[in-house]
């Protein structure tokens, strides 16, 4: 799924952007637990999380995830945005809950990592 479609499906606000609209995201990973991200995710995934902290960006970077979506419209703090910039992670904020965000992306055709 193209980044553009993800942004659109989630009515997301773009905080940082280091990809183009046409770049493809293959998988979704939705969790607040960082070890789960490290265990199950694949690269070229989008991480959808309610953990709107630096740790989510750090974890995404370690796992080669280039796009992170923070749910429930929660604004990250400055260090978190700075880290996203430093690590060149595309950071989006959706007003939706994780449930609705997953629902909308699933409906749009995005799938989970096969494992």
């Amino acid at each position: 799924m193209k980044l553009e479609r993800i942004i659109h499906s989630l009515d997301a606000v773009v905080i940082t952007k280091f990809m183009s609209d046409g770049d493809e995201i293959e998988w979704a990973c939705a969790t607040d637990l960082m070890s789960e991200v490290l265990y199950y995710s694949k690269d070229s995934s989008v991480l959808i999380t309610g953990l709107t902290k630096q740790q989510a960006i750090r974890t995404a970077d370690i796992a080669d995830i280039r796009v992170v979506v923070f749910t429930r419209g929660k604004e990250p703090d400055t260090p978190t945005i700075e880290l996203a910039n430093e690590k060149r992670i595309t950071l989006l904020i959706t007003p939706y809950s994780m449930f609705t965000a997953c629902g909308r992306l699933y409906e749009a055709g995005l799938r989970c990592c096969p494992e």
Binding site: A28, C29, A30, T31, I48, M98, F99, T100, C102, G103, R104, L105, Y106, E107, R111, C112
Partner: peptide, 9 residues
Amino acid sequence: AFVVAGKLY
């Protein structure tokens, strides 16, 4: 969780 939420939604 992604798939469960997706289907349930």
